[in-house]
Simulated assay, not measured.
Amino acid sequence: MQTFRQLGQADQTIHKSRFIARANRCENERELALFLRQFASEHQTAGHLAYAFRMKTAEGIVARFSDAGEPAGTAGKPVMQMLDGQNYVNCCVAVIRYYGGINLGTGGLVRAYGGTAKMAMEQAGSIPFVEMVQLRISTTYKRVDELTREVQRLHGEVLDKQFDEAVHFLLKLPSDAAKQLQARF
């Protein structure tokens, strides 16, 4: 599995219709909704906002797409096929269309939406997907610096710290590293 390295964007005009695509990594449904809402608000006069996403959840991979009023299977579906075919997860690709007055036909729409999405995906690049988990660990005040350094070394993140007779951490770590860290602390 892989995910996007960075935000990717593409813009092209085909038979007077303008297609703008963005490819973005989204770690959860909240980030996904925010990404789509922001993209739509930047292009309020656009005729269509088609999208596709694949999200890894505890129940498995959730994959959905929307053709946004275009003929069925001509906008979101070609984008979804690219995400599926390259095994992307925690990713969303959205394509805005400003209608130019010329009908493209179903084949033309598939090529236009799919081609613009592909350009954005190429610009976003890919990295291997690393599944992250949240972990709660409590430790003594003496070991706080040691734990913090270890979390950084494992490419994790401290989400929250609470202090009382011990220090309680909420961490986000790669799933294989979480077991190692838990054994040490």
Rank of each mutant, 00 (worst) to 15 (best):
S17Y: 06
A23M: 07
S17H: 07
E31Q: 15
T45P: 00
G47P: 03
C26F: 11
L36Y: 10
Q38R: 09
F39Q: 04
H15T: 05
R37L: 08
N24M: 11
E27F: 13
N28G: 13
T45D: 12
E31R: 15
N24S: 11
K16N: 14
E29I: 11
Q38K: 09
A52G: 10
S17C: 03
A50E: 02
A23S: 09
S17Q: 06
A46S: 01
C26A: 15
R25P: 05
N24K: 15
A50D: 00
I14P: 10
I20L: 15
E31W: 05
G47S: 10
A52E: 04
Y51I: 02
F39P: 00
H43Q: 02
A46T: 04
A50K: 04
S41L: 07
A50H: 00
F19L: 09
G47L: 00
C26S: 08
A23L: 05
L32P: 11
F39S: 01
F19H: 10
R22D: 02
T45N: 10
H15D: 14
H48P: 02
A21Y: 09
F39H: 06
C26W: 06
Q38I: 02
L34H: 10
Q44Y: 01
A40I: 05
R30Y: 06
I20M: 12
A21K: 10
E42H: 08
S17D: 04
L34N: 08
A50P: 01
E31T: 12
R18T: 12
R22Y: 07
Y51T: 01
H15P: 00
I14Y: 06
Q44S: 13
A40T: 12
F19E: 10
A23N: 07
A50C: 07
I20Q: 06
L36I: 13
A21P: 07
R25I: 02
